[in-house]
Design a protein around this nucleic acid. Structure first.
Length: 558
RNA sequence: GCGCCUGUAGCUCAGUAGGAUAGAGCAGCGGACUUCUAAUCCGCAGGUCGGGGGUUCGAAUCUUCCCAGGCGCGCCA
């Protein structure tokens, strides 16, 4: 609807140009928004105010000129009026809204789908946890956010590739191997030393048991045993990570291995290119990249004086390779503790002429877990942390995902397990799900009463005349453009608020019927009942589609 | 010290590309189920949008300074 109005406005301004009512100047940036105050109509635009400076006329005057020159062959607008300092407020004709409603019903599961991203392929990298331990709750937030973002992008027509980058080449894997080996040795000799920077979590002992069940670590040399522990440990952890993600409803198209980056020669090739272009230099036995030429605050080492590459080398290479693979844009979801790396990775891309906005990096703030009124401090080093697996098992996938999606990614999130575990109204996930279940229940009731929906809805929908019904129809009309907005802003949490809002409007509507039977969906008047059934069916569709994009189930019964 | 993020109701947070009178949930108080699901709804109360300046028709939103909190500033991974 907003899009239609936008086109209408542009045509109208054009018309004013041709009539000489307005000077031919460039169209300014303007917005069409839904006013908070219902008295201001269904839509409002600030176009006249934005136009004031180039037209050199008062906004209100421009507003009435545009209204006079309105081009509206479809009969979209019922009323247009000048308001406030120079807004134009629009009221759309009921017919138009009803058309939107029947479209929602016809499109069903495809309602909200669009093609705005057509022709664009996007690489979304998220989670990318090291296979040196289980996923913790912070990874869960990234997984929920990333997965939902991918679903929304795909729904908006983007060609999305979901990728998990596996750090399987560096020191940390070696450390896992040493930790596992040490735990194995400690089974017989508790005084066996544990590596200083080793992984302390209990899971390491479990890995040690599993590895030693399969292999006799005593008959092979220490080095080989550590290598074996590292390799097997990685496989075990990785399997666990995949398993956890799967039960969390998160899938990936591609698992990109850092080791492959080395073995395939890609890393060397990318560095050669940078070297040829004079972006690298030797200094004190190490090799550096001149990221300061591109906005970083200091140059960075990519090869240490011991000959090993820094992790940054593979990171540069990985991202340059992403670009080379032909993606029109890339999105990374990182933990906010990595924000210091943003300027340097962007600098490295710029050094190869890749524009800064090709890569969007979403920084995800910390999750604080609360239980029994106490914060559960997490420390990976000390091995004390709540895993995503534990959280899912205790709280349930729907609730965890929903809560992770209630906050903007750059705002820290307090996760109160006591609230989220409750099976009652305090738990926010049920509010939306309940609306869905309630609608299903209405349909069961209608069926009992022998009321069924006809094929065509159009004529019947005219019976929807209540303010609440019209408001619901308008709210639902926002859904497609909301998704487009999210695809632009990458702010998935807005979907959560939208669905909560829609559910609230529905619950309110439903409750009208508890006071006055005339306002029930299923009434004595069959045609009216059918119209309302179409309405709530549309609500069910929007909620189901929205929850689907969030990876949250839409139950028929609760 | 430098950089990034955050600061909105008692608490947790929204606030749609700068728009008109700043919202929700929870907590508090008072109401609504012989009824299509009360996991719901209605009402009341609750705010110098951290503070000061600036930009303009208009600022929670942009800018600058200050205050408070979180995180990051390795030839670690």
């Amino acid at each position: 609807m907003k899009e239609k109005l936008n086109a209408l406005l542009i045509a109208s301004v054009d018309n004013c140009f041709n009539q000489g009512a307005l000077k031919k100047t460039a169209l300014p940036e303007f917005v069409i928004e839904i006013p908070n105050n219902p008295e201001h109509g269904h839509f409002a635009t600030n176009l006249p105010m934005a136009f004031a400076s180039s037209q050199k006329r008062p906004p209100r005057e421009i507003a009435s000129i545009i209204i006079k020159g309105l081009v509206d062959p479809e009969g979209l607008v019922e009323k247009a009026e000048v308001a406030g300092p120079g807004f134009i407020n629009f009221r759309i004709r009921d017919e138009q809204w009803l058309q939107g409603l029947s479209q929602t019903i016809n499109l069903d599961g495809d309602y909200g789908r669009s093609m705005v991203g057509k022709g664009q392929n996007v690489l979304v990298e998220f989670v990318s946890a090291n296979p040196t331990g289980p996923l913790h709750v912070g990874h869960g937030r990234g997984a929920a956010l990333g997965d939902t973002l991918c679903r929304i992008l795909a729904f908006c027509g983007y060609d999305v590739l979901r990728e998990f980058y596996i750090n399987d080449a560096g020191q940390q894997l070696r450390m896992l191997g040493e930790s596992v080996y040490s735990r194995f040795k400690q089974m017989d000799d508790p005084s066996f030393p544990f590596p200083e920077k080793g992984y302390h979590g209990d899971y390491v002992m479990e890995v040690a048991r599993k590895v030693s069940d399969k292999h006799d670590l005593n008959i092979i040399g220490r080095e080989e045993a550590i290598r074996l522990c590292a390799e097997s440990g990685k496989d075990i952890m990785f399997e666990e990570i995949r398993e956890t993600l799967k039960s969390f409803g998160v899938s990936f198209d591609n698992w990109y291995s850092e080791k492959d980056l080395f073995n395939s020669g890609i890393l060397d090739r990318t560095l050669d290119t940078l070297r040829e272009e004079g972006r690298l230099y030797e200094h004190e036995g190490a090799e550096w990249i001149r990221t300061t030429d591109f906005g970083d605050d200091k140059d960075r080492v990519i090869r240490k004086n011991d000959g090993n590459f820094t992790y940054f080398a593979s990171d540069i290479s990985y991202h340059l390779e992403k670009h080379k693979r032909g993606f029109s844009r890339a999105i990374n979801l990182w933990g906010a503790d990595h924000h210091g790396y943003v300027p340097r990775i962007k600098a490295a891309l710029l050094a190869r002429g890749i524009p800064e906005n090709w890569l969007s990096i979403l920084l995800i703030q910390l999750v604080k877990l609360w239980k029994a009124g106490q914060e559960m401090k997490m420390s990976k080093r000390a091995g004390s942390f709540v895993t995503l697996r534990e959280l899912i098992d205790e709280v349930g996938v729907d609730a965890v995902r929903f809560v992770f999606l209630t906050k903007n990614h750059d705002s820290p999130l307090d996760f109160d397990m006591d609230i989220v575990k409750k099976q009652d109204s305090e738990n926010p996930v049920y509010y939306v799900q309940y609306a869905h279940a309630r609608i299903c229940s209405i349909f069961r009731k209608a069926e009992e009463d022998g009321i069924f929906l006809p094929e065509k809805s159009d004529a019947i929908l005219r019976r929807l005349v209540l303010d609440q019904e019209k408001a619901l129809i308008r709210t639902m009309a926002v859904f497609p453009s909301l998704l487009v907005d999210i695809a632009r802003s990458l702010e998935s949490h807005r979907l959560t608020y939208y669905l909560t809002d829609l559910a609230a409007s529905f619950h309110r509507y439903f409750n009208l019927g508890t006071k006055n039977p005339e306002y029930r969906v299923v009434t004595q008047d069959i045609e009216l009942s059918q119209a309302r059934l179409f309405l709530v069916k549309a609500i069910r569709i929007v909620i189901a589609n929205g929850l689907g994009l969030m990876g949250v189930s839409a139950p028929q019964k609760m």
